[in-house]
């Protein structure tokens, strides 16, 4: 299964002139990009190039130094904590390390965001949502297991189920295939596409795995030295003669 070529209209994430520095280390410098509804954009770059910093700025986990980030029409940097929490219902985040709460079962991990954002729903509805999210990632049988009992690929799927539990409009994937064997990585890539169709999501995928790019990307943004160096479909970038772009696709 490969990403389909589609045309997009509505902008769901609009990032303009984003700057972020840690001391003297200027990680992002006037970085701009847009994500359209229904689109999968892979942000490609070397390790330490600021890819994870970028998506953490989008979700408000890190505060950008300057620039603007509009998510679903709301300016993230202007939101107070309450409004930011409300916006986060519409944005799922898959962490690189999965970030499953290791003292909780899979069920409790998935229930955690539900209890926070949808405290009014009945326990039957909550259970139904948990089982549906787990079924969608093919792991319904793990519901009462602890994260330590799961393999790396299973943890990634459960973490994806947790990101999906609130049925977000956007999903941010932080290196979804890092540390996985090629077969599991391929399964996760297929799952990303499956989720896109099933939940009608738009996604930003941070990666330096070219198989992930080829399998999931509708569009690729190449992040070099904190700036958008190149942008386009995987097919177009793959044919590029630029040495930096070529180095990634070679």
């Amino acid at each position: 299964m490969m990403a389909e070529k589609t045309t997009y209209n509505d902008v769901v994430i609009d990032v303009r002139d984003l700057c972020k520095a840690f001391g003297e280390n200027h990680v992002l410098q006037d970085f701009s990009m847009q994500l359209h509804k229904g689109e999968n954009v892979v942000v490609l770059g070397r390790s330490g190039s600021g890819k994870s910093v970028f998506i953490k700025c989008i979700i408000g986990l890190l505060e950008a130094d300057s620039g603007s980030i509009a998510v679903l029409g709301k300016e993230v940097m202007d939101l107070d904590q309450h409004l930011l929490d409300q916006l986060r219902v519409d944005v799922g985040f898959l962490f690189q390390s999965n970030a499953l709460y290791d003292s909780m079962t899979v069920r409790e991990n998935l229930e955690f965001p539900l209890r926070r954002h949808m405290s009014g729903i009945s326990s039957v509805d909550r259970d139904e949502r948990v089982m549906r999210a787990l079924t969608d990632v093919g792991l319904a049988f793990t519901v009462d297991m602890l994260p330590e009992e799961l393999s790396g690929g299973m943890k990634k799927r459960v973490a994806l189920a947790r990101a999906l539990i609130l049925q977000p409009k956007i999903i941010l994937y932080d290196e979804p295939t890092t540390g996985l064997d090629p077969i599991t990585a391929r399964e996760i890539n297929e799952l990303i596409l499956q989720v896109q169709k099933l939940y009608n999501t738009s996604s930003i995928i941070i990666s330096h795995d070219m198989n992930c790019v080829r399998q999931t990307a509708n569009r690729v943004v190449l992040l070099i030295d904190g700036k958008c160096y190149a942008e386009g479909s995987p097919d177009i970038l793959e044919k590029s003669n630029d040495p930096f772009v070529h180095a990634f696709f070679d």
């Binding site: 953490k56 979700i59 986990l61 929490d85 986060r88 219902v89 944005v91 985040f93 962490f95 690189q96 390390s97 999965n98 970030a99 499953l100 709460y101 290791d102 955690f112 965001p113 926070r116 954002h117 947790r162």
Partner: peptide
């Protein structure tokens, strides 16, 4: 292990 970030993203 980013569990604190995950908690924040979950609205906690």
């Amino acid at each position: 292990t980013e569990q604190i970030d995950a908690m924040e993203v979950s609205g906690t």
